[in-house]
């Protein structure tokens, strides 16, 4: 267990930080024009090297997801949550559904059965919003 327990030591930490911020923006945890934590606050909170944190934030600035206001801090670019959702939707079939369908084929689960599961689930979800 690392001192900054939220991040694992298996993949580049700056990448994990950037992914996490993307996820927060996508879920709306970070709203349009909302200020994000400063590099130093983030580093101190998670016990991570500030240069590593700065690299992650810079990656999001370069990607247009965050913008800087000199002397004030970094903010979420308006509309980028929707942009991230659109990107994620475009990759949904390849990244998420594809492997599931491959596995279903290996297990000889007929497509109708999968469709039935999806229908049942969406009904349940509507019943319990």
């Amino acid at each position: 267990m690392s001192a900054g327990a939220v991040f694992d030591d298996r993949t580049a930490i700056y990448r994990q930080i950037a992914d996490r911020l993307r996820e927060d923006i996508l879920r709306g945890v970070l709203a349009d024009d909302e200020q994000v934590m400063s590099t130093n606050q983030y580093a101190a909170f998670h016990r991570i090297n500030p240069a590593t944190v700065a690299k992650a934030f810079q990656e999001l600035v370069d990607a247009g997801l965050l913008y800087k206001r000199r002397g004030v801090g970094m903010f979420v670019t308006p509309g980028c949550g929707e942009r991230l959702r659109a990107e994620r939707r475009a990759r949904f079939v390849d990244d998420v559904l594809g492997p599931v369908l491959d596995e279903a084929e290996r297990l000889a689960i007929p497509p109708e059965e999968i469709v039935a599961v999806i229908r049942a689930r969406s009904t349940t979800a509507k019943g319990h919003p």
Binding site: M1, S2, A3, I13, N40, A43, N49, T52
Partner: peptide, 24 residues
């Protein structure tokens, strides 16, 4: 970390607790 962020300096740490310190 707090003092390093207030005034960066060259810091070298030897340790066997790699998984505990690596993020620093």
């Amino acid at each position: 970390l707090a003092t390093y962020m207030a005034a960066p300096r060259t810091i070298i740490v030897s340790t066997h607790l790699i998984d505990e310190m690596a993020a620093l």
